[in-house]
Write a protein that binds this DNA or RNA. Sequence first.
DNA 1: TTTTGTGAAACGCTTCACAGCG
DNA 2: CGCTGTGAAGCGTTTCACAAAA
Lengths: 217, 217
Amino acid sequence: MDEKSRIPRPTAKRLTLYFRQIRTLAAAGRKTINSRQLGAALGLTGAQVRKDLACFGQFGHPGVGYQIPSLHEQLRQLLGRDRTWNAVLVGAGNIGRALLSYDRFSSEDFRIVAVCDADPSLVGSEWGGREVLAMDRIESAVHEHDAKLGIIAVPDHAAQQVADLLVEAGIEGILNFSPRRLDVDETVSISSVDFTRSLEQLAFQISFGVSGTEEDE
Amino acid sequence: MDEKSRIPRPTAKRLTLYFRQIRTLAAAGRKTINSRQLGAALGLTGAQVRKDLACFGQFGHPGVGYQIPSLHEQLRQLLGRDRTWNAVLVGAGNIGRALLSYDRFSSEDFRIVAVCDADPSLVGSEWGGREVLAMDRIESAVHEHDAKLGIIAVPDHAAQQVADLLVEAGIEGILNFSPRRLDVDETVSISSVDFTRSLEQLAFQISFGVSGTEEDE
DNA sequence: TTTTGTGAAACGCTTCACAGCG
DNA sequence: CGCTGTGAAGCGTTTCACAAAA
């Protein structure tokens, strides 16, 4: 009942999975689901699901399960999905351009509102309908669009420098595609997507024969 | 001393980080490092580093630390990085094309040796110097290049189907860029790169104000 | 000295099991 | 009945702290 009590990190990570599942079920018009069914779809136990959801209040109904429309709306607000998240992308290389073409980033949930790059030959060109801006335009872009998110898709050696610029511009969260560990102020959230590391992990698992085949999720 | 004893999952995940750091130090010509220094560079404690490395034998020298060249070579073999890993990429869309242009996948460590796509209008075209093959060529491509890795970069709804094809072709590890949970044989390793989820996580952390800002690593 | 390798303690998360509610 | 919410037990990982080695 105490909404302020600390949320276990693993629970926080699973919340997005619950939301996806519930959103799909809601769209399909289903009305209720119990903890065991919800967990089974995600490879989790019923107890796990109940413990996780109980962190945020009493959503369930004994003997029935969870009301899907209600749970959907509660999770939506909890996860901050009741608004649009604007993001500034830094780096118009291979990865950056792929992200610009990715329709998920032009949705009403998440939107890339500006692109910056250090390469003068790219500045002024257009990708995915957005003009590439110079690096010194990061701050103005963040303010102009009230962007809360920054996406780093630059070469490794420039990652920390770009992170500093984004933080200084007032960004609150960074999605980092570089393999570098970023050192930023504690108030800024970071989520790293290091697929080089994922690959390296695979190579290890195969050659060493580590038992468990799946990863955290 | 018992090389067969089970390795904790978190330890396995950190191994690649140690290797990267040691490789850099080795290239710089440094000879020794102690556990505290190695850990500090990665945001870990000295005790953590020692426990992790001790899983694989007695690498360190009391009063001195770890010999970098020797540790580098040991980790290299342990992680299977003493050979080239060939991968078959499935999906020549935005993400797939970005991966093809990514020089890390044309290195001597990891190499994309073939590209397949279901879209007939893409088959036969060339991306990053590689011809796009039809889906029914997956199996022959895997065998021809002795590929151990498969990379899934197709639309969500096709992910499981492609995974089945890859497993049937004899692939041993899958790098999955779709947000779908793949159901495969236990002997196949899976590593997922779900940056949509990373984004969603960021949105939650910012709007809810979750304390810890960093993630697992 | 310095620093490793390692039992033992501490911690955090998951699973169990059941009281209580519909 | 069926199912939730939750204290308590169980389990895996991290941290501590120190004997032993150089």
